Simulated assay, not measured.
Amino acid sequence: MPNLVSIIMPVYNAEQYVAEAIDSVLAQQHDYWELLIVNDGSTDRSDEIIRGYTDARIQYFKQDNAGVSVARNVAMQAMKGDYFCFLDGDDQLTVSSLSSRLEVFAQNSKLSFVDGAVSNRTEDLSKETSQWMPNFKGEPLSDLISLSGKSFFGVTWMIKRAPNYNYAFDPSFTHGEDLWFYIQQAKNHQYSFTSEVIYLRRISAGSAMSNLHGLANGYLSLEAKLSQLDIPPCLLSAYRAKRKSIMFKSYLRAGKVLSAFNYYFKT
């Protein structure tokens, strides 16, 4: 019996792209999967489009708008897979996304997480603008906290389910919830990756300043969580230095010089 993979997909007002996201799952080379779609209070035609799919492997849930973390938690409570991974409602998986990661798992029974390359693309997915490639193997806890970017890009890990473990995102986060989710599981577990592209990420137009302020606050919220963990002080210091550097440069690129210096020296 092949391994069942649960694919967690939150959807919020994604009528323009949700069909493409679902179609990318239907096209998988590894076809033993379940797709758990959670409609997080969409007010567009997302519901109508999702209901148009009749494949028995698709499970559909609806909730009032409560955020992506709550939506993912609903799906994870219902999942039955031996492994699970994530797909946002406006992105796509490549056809070998599941099979290539499962192949890495098959080569090493000690692995808990397998990642892969991510293709950042224009809004219509027609052109790649950049590519992220993992560059880390081993226990990823220190790498995640240090924000090196070698083992973390977003919710692109495939995770081998551990028995009797309650997987859940922290809904108090507005940004950085995926990084905190991984950090909570990373200790004493092994990470690896496939060099194949496993995820197509759509870069959509949005409010740059809104995203920047949210990201800045997310980093601060994560630091407060990290300070409660039993981690070496030098690692927490490394996190603080890196998040200040990231946001300082991000604000400067956006032309917000005062915000850059305020964040760097006052947080």
Rank of each mutant, 00 (worst) to 15 (best):
Y12V: 08
N13H: 05
Q16L: 14
Y17P: 01
A27D: 05
H30K: 08
Y32Q: 11
W33S: 03
W33R: 05
S42F: 01
I49C: 00
R57E: 03
Y60S: 01
S69P: 08
V74D: 00
A75D: 08
A78W: 03
K80Y: 01
V95L: 09
S96A: 14
S97N: 03
K110W: 05
K110I: 11
S112K: 00
V114K: 01
T122A: 06
S126P: 08
K127L: 05
T129K: 12
T129W: 11
T129S: 07
S130V: 15
S130F: 10
K137H: 15
S142N: 15
D143A: 15
S146L: 13
S146A: 15
L147H: 14
L147T: 07
V155S: 05
W157D: 04
A162V: 15
P163L: 08
P163C: 06
Y165W: 07
E177I: 01
W180F: 06
Y182Q: 08
Q184S: 09
Q185E: 09
N188C: 06
H189Q: 13
Q190V: 09
Y191W: 12
L200C: 11
I203L: 10
S207H: 07
S207C: 05
L212Q: 00
L215E: 11
L215M: 14
Y219N: 10
Y219R: 04
Y219H: 11
S227T: 07
D230P: 01
Y239G: 04
K244P: 06
S245V: 08
S245L: 12
K249C: 12
L252G: 01
R253A: 13
A254N: 01
G255A: 11
L258H: 12
N262G: 02
N262E: 05
F265N: 02
